[in-house]
Amino acid sequence: MSETTERPPGALQLLFNGIVSENPVFRLALSLCPAVAVTTTVANGFILGVAVLAVQVLSSLTVAIARGVIHPRVRIPVYTIIIAVWVSAIDMTLAAFTPSLYAQVGLYIKLIVAFAIIISRLEVFASRQPLVPSFWDAVGMGLGFMIALMVIGALREVLGSGSFFGIVLFKTKPLLFFALPAGGFFSIALLMAFFNALERKLTGGTAKPAAGGHHG
């Protein structure tokens, strides 16, 4: 707990960090499993992204507040419980008060409990930082995840179904491969390579190699 010695980064820097320099999918390579399963369309990616954003922010705030009372030896199970509580509470509340919205997002909410990105932000950031920076980190990571899912979804929907956000673009026979899970991994690899190449170009080839080898 060394946050007293160094000033926590500012809001803008944390947002940029989550969306670009440590993007959960393209840089940290976390939560690839849901990123592949769900991103057959842009709309799917958007809905899951919003759900992750909400749970990430609420869980990070809870951990940032309660970090003093959580025993460090059992912090991971406690984080899992905190995430599960928020997911279940959101699930029940949406089912009760917004049934039409719940019909669309209910499936996505229940998937979130096991997302590596959320628990890793709790461990890496919210458990060591005060409330306000934890909030901005959670918002940045949530937005970064949502944008990544929508970019993957856009590529796969255009190539795999010939449409964008449900609007039919061209009526030729689409490449079914991109709608299938294998195509999802392929799309993520293509986009990751593209963003790495872009970064190398922008920074003049001095960028450190992209992070990788994380699991989850």
Binding site: A37, V38, T40, T41, N44, L48, L107, Y108, K110
Partner: peptide, 10 residues
């Protein structure tokens, strides 16, 4: 009601 995977079983 169902809980199949979005984009696949759903």
């Amino acid at each position: 009601e169902h809980e199949e995977d979005p984009g696949l079983g759903a």
